[in-house]
Simulated assay, not measured.
Amino acid sequence: MSRRAWNGVSVDIAEFHCGGRVAHHLCYENETRLSVLLEEVGSHCEPRLREDQPCPIGYMPRHMHFAPAGMEMWGYSADARFVKDATLTFDLAVLGDRLATKFNADTTAAPRLRFCDDRIWTLVKLLSDAVNDRDPSTQLYGDGLTAAIVARLFADRPEPGEDGSGLAPWQLRRIVEYLDAHLPERVDLAHLAALADLSQSHFSRAFKASTGMAPYRWQLDARVRRAQALLIDSHASLDQVAEATGFADAVHFGRTFRKLTGATPAAWRRDRKN
């Protein structure tokens, strides 16, 4: 585990090599915290309020959860292989003083069990990459990132349905289940829109509002996650993994994999093999 603090925000980066079903009590229950899933290989991870109570909100990539101090949380996966996450804990008094702001109590006390915000995810990923960087300039860099995360996370949120841009839970569940079932096949946008009973343009906007990704990017991300599972769980060659996940060849696969993960498939596999 790696740890660093900026601006009244403590950042813990943890990696877990798993095998099979995982159900565990999450730490930091006495602190206000944000937990962000940076990588997952195997079946999807989910936050739970009780160990035996499934998350009522459907899966979405790059998801996270927010919990106020005093709330217990559990983590669960039916068959996890590798998980990397970032947990940010907030000292609201210090943050309020340093950022010269007063936080809305309703916002900081309201749990958000499973949600997606691509801006927050990107900021947290940048912050996680800086945790072990001891260059002096990293202090100002991290201060800026944490300030941006806090501003986004604790901004007054619109009332449900106010912007009318997201998919309904049943629509998102139907689309995600369809995409998962048809990986890595070609899927037409028109068919996805029809499944949600929306026009293509409305569906595209609503899907991105709900998941933080365009439909094509969600499918590409899912293909790379399936490739990661094969890299960890098998001795398949890169050509075989590329073919199994719908890439034209190992070169195309390697280029896409590196773009999305920051590492080549071979280097990623080597770093995560026990």
Rank of each mutant, 00 (worst) to 15 (best):
S2N: 12
A5V: 04
A5L: 03
A5G: 03
G8C: 04
S10G: 00
A14I: 13
A14K: 15
E15I: 11
E15N: 11
C18K: 15
G20D: 01
H25L: 11
H25Q: 09
L34G: 00
E40S: 15
V41P: 07
H44A: 14
C45H: 10
C45V: 15
E46I: 12
E46A: 15
D52V: 00
D52S: 05
Q53F: 05
P54W: 04
P56M: 02
G58M: 03
M60S: 14
M64N: 08
H65G: 14
A67P: 07
E72C: 00
G75A: 06
G75W: 05
S77I: 08
A80R: 12
A80L: 15
F82Q: 08
D85K: 10
D85V: 06
D85P: 01
T87C: 14
T89M: 01
D91G: 02
G96E: 08
N104C: 10
A105Y: 00
R112W: 07
L113H: 06
D118V: 13
W121Y: 15
T122E: 07
L123Q: 10
V124G: 04
L126M: 08
L127K: 01
L127F: 01
S128I: 03
D129T: 02
D129C: 07
D129N: 10
D133I: 11
D133Q: 03
D135V: 06
P136Y: 13
Y141L: 09
Y141I: 00
F154K: 02
P160M: 07
S165L: 15
L167I: 11
L167H: 08
Q171K: 10
R174T: 15
V176K: 01
E177C: 02
E177H: 09
Y178K: 05
L179S: 02
L179Q: 11
A181P: 13
A181K: 14
H182K: 09
L183I: 12
R186V: 14
L189Y: 12
L189D: 13
A190Q: 15
H191Q: 14
L192M: 12
A194Q: 12
L195I: 13
A196K: 05
R205C: 03
A206C: 06
M213L: 15
R217L: 08
L220A: 14
D221L: 08
D221Q: 09
R226C: 08
A227S: 10
Q228L: 07
A229I: 03
L231F: 03
S237D: 04
E243T: 14
A244D: 08
G246M: 10
F247I: 02
A248K: 14
T256Y: 02
T256I: 13
R258C: 13
K259T: 13
L260C: 09
L260K: 11
L260V: 07
T261A: 04
A263D: 10
A267R: 11
W268K: 06
R270P: 00
